[in-house]
Computed example of a mutant assay.
Amino acid sequence: MPSTLPASLLEVLRCPVTGSPLRQDGDELVAVEDETMRYPIEHGVPTLLPADSAV
């Protein structure tokens, strides 16, 4: 079962690539302006790294 992030957190989070707001879709955050930009939520913590970034 995905954990729901607080609305106050979703209000300030932005897609690191497009800068658009994010909405929660299950266990992912999705950029509002480009739904191909998706970021996982793992153990209640969003990972906002672009897929092509090296850590």
Rank of each mutant, 00 (worst) to 15 (best):
A51D: 05
S20W: 15
S53R: 01
L13T: 07
R23H: 04
R14A: 15
G19P: 09
T4H: 10
M1A: 06
G44W: 13
S8R: 14
P21L: 12
L49K: 03
G19L: 14
L13R: 00
S3F: 10
E28M: 04
L22Y: 01
V55S: 09
E28A: 09
E35G: 13
C15H: 14
V32F: 09
D27P: 06
L48F: 05
D34M: 02
P50H: 09
P6C: 06
D25Y: 08
P6A: 13
L29R: 06
R38C: 07
L49D: 09
A7L: 14
E33Y: 13
S20P: 03
S20D: 14
L29T: 03
V45M: 09
Y39D: 10
V17W: 09
I41M: 03
I41D: 03
A31L: 03
G26N: 12
R23A: 10
S53A: 11
G19I: 08
T36P: 00
P21M: 06
G44I: 04
S8A: 13
T4G: 07
I41Y: 00
L49M: 11
T4Y: 03
L22Q: 05
P2Q: 11
L22A: 09
L13M: 01
T47M: 12
V45P: 00
E28G: 07
L29E: 00
L49I: 15
G26W: 12
P50D: 04
P40V: 13
L13H: 01
V55C: 01
D34I: 15
L29V: 08
R14S: 13
P2L: 01
L48D: 01
A51S: 09
V55L: 07
V32P: 09
E28H: 08
V17D: 02
L10P: 08
L13S: 09
T36R: 10
T4F: 02
E35A: 11
L29C: 05
I41T: 02
D52N: 06
E35Q: 14
G26S: 08
D34F: 08
H43T: 10
R38Y: 13
D25G: 04
